[in-house]
Simulated scan of single mutants.
Amino acid sequence: MKESVLRLACEGTPLVGILAEPSDGAAAEVGLLIIVGGPQYRAGSHRQFTLLARHLAANGFAALRFDYRGMGDSPGEARDFLGVEADIAAAISALLAARPTLKRVALWGLCDAASAALLYLESTRDDRVAGVALLNPWVRSAATLAQTHVKHYYWRRLRERGFWLKLLKGGVGGAALRGLASNLRLARGAGHKTDSRSFQDRMAAGLRGFGGPTLLVLSGDDYTASEFASCAAASPAWAGLLKRPALDLHEIPTADHTFSALPDHDAQCRICLDWLRTRCLAKYT
């Protein structure tokens, strides 16, 4: 594989990207745009975006990772995942212009970058997007976080003998019970929001309006993934979306949020590569 700097412009601001591609230039007809979750720059935690892009390039796919405005080597005002639609559009345009043999682009995002990808689809309906890969999507609110704590922390603590011993001795158990009560009150509000323009509902609308292949990868050791699963199960906006034939769901039980262990990182790379080959390229082969 080979890498080169790809300079692009977003609303007059120059952005910096790194394009990885096969060394012989014979890339597949679908490229991958790695959207960065924040606040991070194009390398990612423990270089995971760099390693993913190089892995895909070595196996025949062009992959672009880039810095948003205000992040890494790109100047401009810093922004969060709710304000990067123009950056994503500019990166798609730059990738297709730099490699005219590409027909379309798949989007890949971890955490709030996955959320940004769905928000981009909701607002643009960009027909240049061939597929979307979502890893541990971010849907956090006070209510969903409380739900997750109740389900995955407090019930486990209540089953532990040590917790009750501390409670009887006047230790931290009392504070934990008060925390449980507070989280239960917040959790009751999850799934009952009526604001159809909340970013979580907009994410669901983006997925519902997208007819292409979708990859969803969830880590087994990650609160963000647990929150997403709870939100998708409880919210009417997400009803049926994770059971659509176009969606491939993979769970990696040992993985943390960023797939930091090498076997988990390698697993998600293999899953992504297989999805690109069997799903995103199907239209062109």
Rank of each mutant, 00 (worst) to 15 (best):
Y68F: 14
D126H: 09
A57S: 15
L135C: 08
R47K: 14
P245Y: 12
G212H: 13
A27R: 13
R178S: 02
P236F: 11
H152E: 06
I35Q: 05
A113P: 02
K283G: 01
W138D: 01
R156M: 04
A261Q: 12
V217I: 15
R202M: 07
R188T: 05
M203D: 01
D256P: 01
S230C: 11
L215S: 09
F199Y: 15
D87C: 11
G70T: 05
H55P: 02
A130P: 03
L242R: 12
C272W: 14
Y223K: 01
S115Q: 03
A225C: 05
T254R: 15
C231S: 04
H152I: 00
S74C: 08
G211W: 12
A63K: 10
T144H: 08
V132S: 07
I34P: 00
L177G: 09
G189Q: 13
G179Q: 13
A225G: 09
L134V: 02
A58M: 06
A142Y: 04
T144V: 08
L241K: 07
A94K: 11
S93Y: 00
S219L: 03
A9I: 05
Y68G: 02
A267I: 02
A114Q: 02
T214H: 01
A133F: 04
A246C: 06
L82M: 13
G174A: 14
E85Y: 00
G220D: 04
H192K: 14
D266L: 15
E227N: 03
R47C: 04
R244I: 02
H192W: 02
A190P: 00
R208K: 13
R208E: 10
E21S: 15
Y68L: 11
R202A: 12
G171I: 04
L82I: 02
L242E: 03
A232K: 09
A20L: 07
R54P: 00
L186Q: 14
L56T: 07
G191N: 09
L249V: 15
K151Y: 00
D67F: 10
E251F: 06
W108M: 02
L186M: 12
T214P: 00
A57H: 13
L249G: 02
T148K: 08
N183G: 00
L51E: 14
A63L: 11
G25N: 06
D126K: 12
A57E: 10
T194Q: 15
V5R: 15
L247F: 08
E29G: 10
V5G: 06
A26W: 00
L177I: 08
G44N: 07
P22D: 09
A234D: 12
L102I: 10
N59L: 11
W108E: 01
V105Y: 12
R161V: 04
A142Q: 11
D24S: 11
A113S: 13
A142S: 11
T101H: 11
T278H: 14
V217T: 10
P236M: 05
P213I: 12
L6F: 10
L119G: 04
G44T: 04
